[in-house]
Design a protein around this nucleic acid. Structure first.
Lengths: 335, 335
DNA sequence: TTGTACGCGTTATCAT
DNA sequence: ATGATAACGCGTACAA
């Protein structure tokens, strides 16, 4: 059988309460007894029973990531970052994928809270901005951190990058290369980041005093196919853009795919800019210029906030990076 | 406070044991009382306390996926498949990434078993073939299912595709297109699938009575970079191949990247064949011919085996699919 | 078919 | 600084 606290206490010659104190790093234990107990832990290869700890202590040593699936890379990197931080505290991460337009979303999250009694929750868009979710968290007095939230920024702990600023920087970069007609593919409407990135695009145009042309903006929904479709439409214009800025890398890959299909060379015929974790663009096409959002870091910092001893409502901004892989501007116009 | 079994029993006018019977779908309960208890569940919005169930009942309603990370797509699809099946039984999946060359691997897995007391484990390569892991499972009498194992095939429950057959089919396909010099990029040496796929390649060559040329085989390790490196080497040959078959899609993407960099058009100058979940190749380049391994299905079936009432040592083979996206053979030789 | 009483391994309360 | 004892919520003998 697995050793219990009882076995440890007998071996160390102390009461079970003292063993529990050592286990939980409580202060009032003499160094001598602490050492004896620690030794007993080791010789017995003692591992605490999580179910018992949870039942008695009202904490589960588990946190959950409630995550929709924009792209496998995003999910993977986010999970990795959170796990890295959890490891430091011996906490377990449980991944709870959700479907953002499921009518059972609230129920699913509530059953997650009750079911595994997680100590905290990390939310990613778009659930970060659903009032019902925020209400649920408040009602259940649940610790949670939001990643890239779009609303009520100061109400809860959150971790994010400056999406507006990043899109501005990218657009400025394209303008500096000489592009004047820059196509823009937006993200899914229910994600706050979509509007933020579009705002950044417009800000850079305004700065440069270039008129905003609505025909150059196409609605996408953060997946490969919508990026490809939007590109077809943009390239079919009488005056097609010389550069296309997609709101995420999945869509940028769609742009690239269409460019290849049409025999356009990149970036000579068409510049393509993406936005995301860089993993995809590096993977797909090393010449794709992109805004690198350090997703793994976002996850790590989110878990860090959640696991901090004194949980505070803090906002943590993580820096982005412009990864330039094109040096030429428009050579000839595409189409 | 959250309702307990006690509250339910009081409302339904029965004992807690009867409530427990209903909760666990035990047979000897009259339909009338079962209905009353079920109604009480609903009105109280009762949700069982998992910690208490685990402590008393010695089962956790959780299974774990111990998974190394060859590619984010693989991990994502595997998780999705398992989760889909878990949902049916109200079981929770916990994802445990591991590092296949960590010396703490055994400890990590053992602490997973003790720590969250999972009811079962799903293993992916290469941990599937580590004798120490198999010994650990036996010692702890742990239910587990292996995905794509390479050794001791009949000893444990497992789920897999016919890797040899799939590689044979792909190679036959390339031969039928007219290719005679087909480069092959192997997977990481510690994965059993690597050897299996190479065997399939050789089998098809033998069939066609084409001499096996060792110079056309390059060692990769299932990631993008190694695929690109191997391709550089292959294309630098005095007689370069007209087609390259990479043992997985991540490496095939590397091949593609080099082809683009060199201005080769695909598949006219170079045919590229991949092997994997098709998600990557569809994503990267719609013209990439690939063997589709239904990773999601593998995960689903693995969980299915694990959660079955009577756990049996079964082997389940899942069909693969050849997805052709090239119709032309070698037009001119690359290089 | 239903109920009683005890135990699971840990934390919390209140002593000393 | 340490210890005795009562919870925590549910499953399981065993009894009825």
């Amino acid at each position: 059988m697995r050793p219990t606290i009882n076995d440890v206490s007998r071996l160390a010659g102390v009461s079970i309460k003292t063993v529990s104190r050592v286990l939980n790093n409580e202060p009032r234990v003499s160094e001598a007894t602490r050492a004896r107990v620690t030794a007993a832990f080791a010789t017995l290869k003692y591992r605490p029973n999580m179910a018992a700890r949870t039942l008695a202590g009202h904490r589960s040593f588990q946190i959950a990531l409630a995550c929709d699936n924009p792209s496998p890379y995003y999910v993977y990197e986010m999970q990795s970052g959170i796990r890295d931080r959890c490891l430091l505290d011996g906490v377990r991460m449980i991944a709870q994928p959700y479907d953002h337009d499921s009518d059972r979303l609230i129920d699913d999250i509530e059953s997650l809270i009750d079911g595994s009694g997680v100590d905290g929750l990390i939310l990613t868009p778009p659930a970060t901005d659903y009032p019902e979710i925020l209400a649920l968290m408040a009602r259940r007095k649940m610790r949670f951190v939001r990643v890239s939230p779009g609303t009520d920024l100061d109400l809860t702990a959150s971790v994010f990058i400056d999406n507006v600023g990043a899109a501005t920087v990218m657009t400025r970069h394209l303008l500096a290369l000489g592009h004047r007609r820059i196509g823009f593919i937006t993200g899914h409407a229910s994600y706050a980041t979509s509007a933020q990135r579009l705002a950044g695009y417009r800000a850079a145009l305004d700065e440069a005093e270039i008129a905003f042309d609505p025909v150059l903006v196409r609605g996408g929904d953060y997946d490969f196919t919508s990026g490809a479709d939007a590109t077809e439409a943009l390239l079919a214009l009488r005056l097609p853009p010389t550069a296309i800025f997609a709101s995420n890398d999945d869509m940028a890959a769609g742009v690239l795919s269409v460019a290849h299909r049409r025999g356009l060379s990149v970036p000579t015929d068409l510049s393509i800019a993406g936005f995301g974790d860089d993993a995809i663009s590096r993977f797909v096409w090393p010449a794709l210029t992109t805004i690198r959002q350090p997703t793994r870091t976002l996850g790590y910092k989110a878990a860090d906030l959640l696991l901090a001893a004194e949980f505070a409502v803090k906002r943590i901004e993580v820096p982005f990076e412009l990864i330039r892989r094109d040096s030429t501007g428009p050579v000839r116009s595409a189409g």
